[in-house]
Design a protein around this nucleic acid. Structure first.
Length: 510
DNA sequence: GGCAGTTCTATATAGACAGCATGTC
DNA sequence: CTATATAGAACTGCC
């Protein structure tokens, strides 16, 4: 299949033009880029270096990318580091990079025009339906990248049909076809939950009437028209939030002031956030996640391990998509699970439960985090968990956010011991280190690599740093950093551990 | 027997936004 | 139920 694509790509180069190729998968994007790169005669050693520099330690993916880039071709997908993606986009705009083989990321996000857009296939794997045509909207999104209005009068979008019949179908479907209608996503439960709580928390909605008024003006209501169905959906959600103790519906009969009395006449339920609910909406996590975190934290005091917290945050909607357990891995992951069974804060679903797969994925994701804080390097993580540098970063960010949220929830629930554990874990995740390095990480300029070097040389805490002579320290860290570190322990006064926050919340009463 | 080239088979399949408070190797 | 590109295994044929 790639043969035609490569031919078209090379022809584009002959025309002195640039092309974007939208591949159906990452593997395919990388391979296409590589195949084309083999056949070009550009040489951009400087760019190659810069790509490698983007990561502290170049991984296999980095090297593969740099080899392609040297020849003026790039691949582009979410597994790349942000820096690398930016560099590719920038160099493509400048014209240094001639061809980008990308997954659909590039079409959705930024505006990166090219003379020619090549879409090798308009079919893509879709869940349980096997291969399916991509939406017309998405086709338009991709094809719309063709042509750079500032420089050129025309652009070309080329797609490849496998047969005459397919050619006709593509023509019918995408050239003559109407783009799909846009549907409101508000009705999706997690979204509705989150927004409803947020609106109640901020006081925009304070009773059933204001709730209905608000939602009747949304695009969602505009589309569905059937207001009574909508309000029953909302009522259900209100009920759920109340059950979770994120909002309260004060009992009107108990009130006897004027305002409530008048509300009673109109038979409107008053909706008020609880303190917990308010904080949760500020944290911007799905209320379902918040409920789940609360339940898990309840269990934590008995069986606290690092893995407990890691698995907890790994099994949330926010962490999705989780690392997928491949067919071959199933047994191995389960084996690891058995070893850590005691640490689980939620109960394991039955093997027959449709949710079991996702549960197993949460275990794999947690194992990945565990490996990261046990100082395994990125190549190992790639080999073992099939996770690339760009994704590692995103996952770590999400983990930090969720742990922060869990910490805040724990504070409201007055669980101080948990708070301590979470802070430690956050530091370890941020740095990717074992617990034994934490004291050293308080120093500026000391992270994963240097703290490990210090530790292995017997320097294990700030006291050791003070004691060790500057020459030895310089041998380990280099002169400049050694000096700086010495200065830091000399000025012991400003002993603010990085990454920790002052507790802004004081809600002892709750 | 060793190797290159070829066919066969198993396997996996795109991605992004949130909180917070400042400074990674 | 429906696909397909890719990686890697198995296999072939040649020297």
């Amino acid at each position: 299949m790639t043969e035609e694509v490569i031919t078209i790509a090379l022809e584009t180069l002959q025309l002195q033009k640039q092309a974007l190729i939208f591949a159906a998968s990452r593997a395919s994007a990388e391979k296409t880029a590589e195949d084309i790169a083999k056949l070009t005669s550009f040489s951009l050693p400087l760019l190659e270096q810069e790509i490698l520099k983007a990561a502290s330690v170049p991984t296999k993916q980095c090297r593969r990318l740099s080899h392609c880039i040297r020849k003026g071709i790039a691949f582009h997908h979410a597994g790349l580091l942000q820096k690398q993606r930016e560099l590719i986009e920038e160099e493509f705009r400048k014209g240094t990079i001639r061809i980008i083989c990308a997954t659909p990321t590039l079409a959705a996000g930024l505006s990166l025009p090219a003379y020619r857009v090549i879409i090798p296939s308009l079919k893509r794997f879709s869940g349980s339906w096997g291969m399916d045509w991509i939406p017309v909207l998405e086709y338009l999104q991709m094809a719309g990248r063709a042509g750079r209005p500032e420089y050129e009068k025309e652009g070309q979008a080329i797609t490849i049909a496998k047969s005459d019949a397919e050619k006709d179908e593509i023509y019918e479907r995408y050239i003559c076809g109407e783009p799909e209608d846009i549907y409101s996503k508000l009705a999706v439960e997690p979204v509705l939950r989150t927004y409803l709580l947020s609106l109640i928390s901020s006081g925009i909605i304070n009773d059933e009437k204001s709730m209905k008024d608000f939602f009747s003006q949304t695009f969602w209501a505009h589309q569905f028209k059937d207001i009574s169905k909508l309000s029953s959906t909302m009522e259900k959600m209100v009920h759920v939030l109340e059950g979770w103790k994120f909002i309260i519906i004060p009992n009107n009969e108990e009130k006897n002031d004027f305002i409530s009395a008048s509300l009673l006449e109109r038979k409107e339920k008053v909706l008020k956030p609880t303190l917990l609910g308010k904080r949760i909406s500020e944290l911007y996590i799905d209320p379902l996640t918040a409920r789940y975190l609360l339940d898990c934290l309840e269990q934590f005091s008995e069986k606290k391990t690092t893995f407990s917290l890691l698995q907890m945050i790994s099994h949330t909607l926010e962490m999705r998509p989780l690392l997928r357990t491949k067919a071959k891995e199933g047994d191995k992951i389960q084996e690891e699970l058995v070893k850590r069974y005691e640490a689980l804060l939620e109960k394991e679903p039955s093997t027959f439960d449709p949710e079991y797969d996702e549960f197993l994925n949460s275990i794999k994701t947690a194992l990945f985090f565990e490996a990261w804080i046990n100082e395994f390097d990125e190549d190992y993580l790639m080999e073992t968990f099939d996770i690339r540098p760009g994704e590692i970063k995103v996952k770590l960010d999400t983990a930090d956010w969720l742990l922060y949220a869990a910490d805040e929830i724990a504070k409201i629930e007055n669980k101080k011991e948990i708070s301590k554990e979470i802070s430690k874990l956050r530091l370890r995740l941020q740095n990717g280190t074992k617990e034994e390095l934490l004291p050293l990480l308080r120093l500026k300029g000391i992270g994963r690599v240097r703290s490990r070097r210090l530790f292995n040389s017997g320097i294990k805490d700030l006291g050791d740093i003070k004691k060790v002579d500057i020459t030895t320290l310089s041998q380990i860290l280099g002169k400049a950093i050694a000096d700086d570190v010495k200065k830091q322990v000399g000025e012991e006064i400003k002993e603010v551990p990085k990454g920790t926050r002052k507790g802004q919340l004081s809600m002892e009463r709750f």
